[in-house]
Design a protein around this nucleic acid. Structure first.
Lengths: 222, 222
DNA sequence: TAAGTTATGTTAATAATTTAACAAAGAGAT
DNA sequence: ATCTCTTTGTTAAATTATTAACATAACTTA
């Protein structure tokens, strides 16, 4: 049929990696099928929600068996676009950029790390995971020639918007943004904010809540 | 009053770092007040939603002026628990662990990096951002003695659950999880999954959607 | 001091998401 | 072949989240 104009709800997309992670692990077991009820126990999501999420993309289950683990994993891979190659560059070869250079997650998702760029002369020429760090002034040409789809942005906040504009002008399709500053990109460019420190915010926010509740309880007891 | 038993909805918590980021940047300008309407333009969230989110925590605005940028920033910091110190350790001193050792985000959020652990003898003894890498067998004692609240987990997937159990047994309050595997923790321990590669999933999922739509359109034209 | 603006905080309406319920399909047992 | 059991995919209900509307408060100008 082709559910063309309808966008996949972001909230569903955000759960796909959860299913993916568990199905990947399940493949190491001898289990062949898994029910939505079992998946529910593993993921903490309700079985109803899992069935609904999956049914959004098609009919993958088998009545009274459940889902074929291998097939569902393959289907999810296709849904998440892992079946064709995406070309990636890293912009900023500091500590975080280096960690991304050695990240193990690219291959299974069919991302191909094509280049690493920095403006610091001390880093240029360095090899990271067999890829040489190039000067950032070659970046525009490289994006066009090598058909780069996605740029991981790990530059200091002050430089971020300027380099972003440049990436956009060169035709980048998506930015995997590790900076801490608000970036502006045109609507046709994807911006995926991967703010590391957001996790710290959530953790202390909830810890703080629990901490305050303890205090409240102590007060009430008096 | 004390809104005790009610938990802060996760969806609101997830927007707090967005407000925080923009207010931080706004402090560099000479602006003193900002309206929900202006914040809406910056964040892309509706002004109504912004007012509602903020009103969840109290009455911070001033009629016909808007919000005092500095005060709101301070309030958000308190809400997210940045007003008291959280002690942090990094478990796993590989590339990602090293990047986290040099992460600049701790100080402003009042996280204190107290220790780094690894089992690899080649890494033990190494100094990362002036902190020595210790052997992982000292970790239990360290957590208790140094009152560690949060552990950043950057070990290989295979070792993750085992070390998690150990952290939990030692009394850790939260785990900032960078592994790719599903972890099990008891309900009283916070688990914040900071899966780096989730961003790649979302990016290619949406790119894939657009790619398929282009194909669909080409087919229809025939 | 009154009229006109601005922008909040909150209530009401709408939309999105999740859960619950169940009919239908299929498998296994008798 | 029939009965029972399992588990899906889907429809309906309940819940949660977002947007729109507006009364109220406070500032500005005349």
């Amino acid at each position: 049929m082709g559910k063309n104009p309808e966008e996949i709800p972001g909230i569903i997309i955000s759960r796909l990696p959860v299913y993916y992670k568990h199905l990947k692990q399940l493949q190491e077991s001898s289990k062949e099928y898994i029910s939505s009820e079992e998946l529910s126990k593993l993921t903490g999501l309700s079985s109803s929600l899992i069935r609904k999420d999956l049914s959004y993309f098609g009919t993958f289950g088998r009545k009274s068996y459940g889902y074929d683990i291998y097939c569902l994993f393959q289907q999810l891979s296709i849904i998440m676009g892992f079946n064709y190659q995406k070309n990636l560059i890293i912009v900023g070869a500091g500590y975080l950029g280096q960690a991304l250079a050695y990240n193990k997650g690219y291959e299974e998702r069919n991302y191909k790390l094509k280049g690493i760029f920095d403006k610091n002369p001390k880093l240029i020429g360095l090899y990271l995971n067999d890829i040489i760090v190039k000067p950032v002034n070659k970046i525009d040409e490289f994006i066009k020639k090598e058909n780069i789809d996605i740029a991981a942005l790990t530059v200091p906040g002050g430089a971020a918007q300027k380099i972003t504009d440049r990436l956009v002008a060169a035709g980048i399709k998506g930015i995997w943004d590790f900076t801490e500053v608000p970036l502006k990109v045109p609507k046709n460019v994807l911006l995926e904010e991967q703010n590391i420190n957001e996790g710290l915010c959530k953790l202390s926010c909830v810890l703080n809540k629990e901490f305050n509740e303890e205090i409240d309880q102590n007060c009430e007891q008096k």
